[in-house]
Design a protein around this nucleic acid. Sequence first.
DNA 1: GATGATCCTTCGACAATCTAGCAACGTGGG
DNA 2: CCCACGTTGCTAGATTGTCGAAGGATCATC
Lengths: 181, 181
Amino acid sequence: MTDVRDAPVAARTRADEAPSASEPWFEGGPARTAAEVLDLLRRYREAEAAMRARARSSMRMNETDLRALRHLLRAQRHDDLVRQRDLAEALDISSASVTALVDRLERSGHVERRPHPSDRRSVVLVPTADTDREVRETLGDLHARMAAVAEDLTPEQLAAVGRFLSGMVDAVRSTGADERA
Amino acid sequence: MTDVRDAPVAARTRADEAPSASEPWFEGGPARTAAEVLDLLRRYREAEAAMRARARSSMRMNETDLRALRHLLRAQRHDDLVRQRDLAEALDISSASVTALVDRLERSGHVERRPHPSDRRSVVLVPTADTDREVRETLGDLHARMAAVAEDLTPEQLAAVGRFLSGMVDAVRSTGADERA
DNA sequence: GATGATCCTTCGACAATCTAGCAACGTGGG
DNA sequence: CCCACGTTGCTAGATTGTCGAAGGATCATC
């Protein structure tokens, strides 16, 4: 499922951290060319997509429903109310699709419709306690592992990664804007 | 469409490249915390997803068809033959879906069915000349901009980014594997 | 050559999405 | 106060992309 068969580069990473003795690779890891780094970014994208596919399969859910759940859990952490309308905008689907989506999530016990405190037209969506637990279990300690990697970097390395990622965001943002309107 | 409203961090990047005078930020960009870097990665993911949505809309195509096209163009650069079966595996969809998919792409003039040189059961899929051009136009010089960012980094910075991305790949790969089989 | 595997297609079903239209509710000006 | 208009979520019907099952043609093997 788009995952294995290209492990070598990723797997080599930790093993090669022993300094090459001729060049001062401090604690920075192996040498990389620009092309290799871009290829690594591609590999990250693919690994991430594969992970989402696994999560989708594990929770028996389609992509949109999973995105909705993540949006709801995120909003819950910020104590934000989420109406169906908000979900429609966040997921870029029609309000009719959101109705169907919430029907599914409600039927599977992942979300509850609550009356909006100040607007009787609206519905407030609340993820179930089980949902939070299920997502955490499915993701394992993904965030912790990612944080550990980032926290292992020196300030200079963090700055380098920050610069790189910012550049990637800018590069990607200024693409495909040739659309009508 | 999930894109704007969070520009500050990305926008700040280039502007802040002037050294802060108290700490030696060589040519490394602004200081970053681990949390900020992970947030940047999330922003990259969202920007990338938004770009794909724009490309999809611009070429009037769904996600799968676009992935198929990218796969075909990539294979063409490597002089690899792609049968429908290969596409089914690469995209993780059924052979029936591939038939429908290729029907669509053929009808829209993006791909041609050619006889396989040595297997008369198979069909070799070849992207049209226009397809390559259209994709290039849609993506603009995305790859050039990304390459420019990477090539602007020092070897130490490249190594740092490589280490970070490898770590992210490993973190993501070892997630959600709690699935049956 | 016969037999089983592989490649693609067709068919019917289903899930997820869309648009259009509607009823309930909120908002602001006479 | 009330009325016109915008907003919110729901329903109905159509469309799209996917699947599984079955079948015909071809390949590979004994």
